[in-house]
């Protein structure tokens, strides 16, 4: 069964850890002629990746445009603004899957550590709660 729409949650701040997941998503998109949507979550407070939500969204869009240029169905981006990203990110990503109508999620997991027993990784949480397939890239 081919995938039509792949959602890739990305963290602009930790872009260096996202490479493998993004490459995987691009390869899958090319394989299935699927559309890519990069999803980013930011807060209203200035952060390392942007001064404000509007700037964050522009960076996301620029990244999607650059990344989707050589893909058959292209790539777009979607930005969500959270009051408290730390606490709300999992819920937002789960809602995003439904809202954009993705049928596959490709995302980077952070490096597994001892705290995983208490706080599951975002990737792990997505995999257990989402209705669609989730590809967690270690």
């Amino acid at each position: 069964m081919p995938y039509k729409h792949i959602m890739v949650p990305i963290d602009l701040e930790h872009a260096d850890r996202m490479g493998k997941a993004i490459d995987t998503a691009r390869a899958l998109a090319r394989q299935f002629d699927a559309k890519l949507t990069f999803v980013g979550v930011t807060s209203e407070v200035p952060g390392p990746s942007a001064h404000n939500p509007a700037e964050f969204e522009k960076k996301m869009a620029a990244f999607a445009q650059e990344s989707g240029a050589d893909l058959p169905a292209g790539a777009s981006s979607k930005t969500y603004v959270a009051h408290d990203p730390t606490a709300h990110i999992d819920g937002i990503l789960l809602d995003a899957v439904k809202e954009i109508g993705a049928d596959l999620v490709v995302m980077a997991s952070h490096i597994p550590n001892v705290m995983n027993a208490i706080w599951p990784s975002h990737g792990g949480k997505m995999a257990s709660h989402a209705d669609v397939s989730v590809f967690v890239v270690r």
């Binding site: 490479g19 404000n52 939500p53 522009k58 869009a61 620029a62 445009q65």
Partner: peptide, 28 residues
Amino acid sequence: MTEDIKNTEIEADDQPEVEPIPEPEGDT
């Protein structure tokens, strides 16, 4: 490619496809 996401140059003609934030924030 991924190393410079953070420092991506924003092009002037760049139009995001979806616009979840209702309005641009205006001049500050």
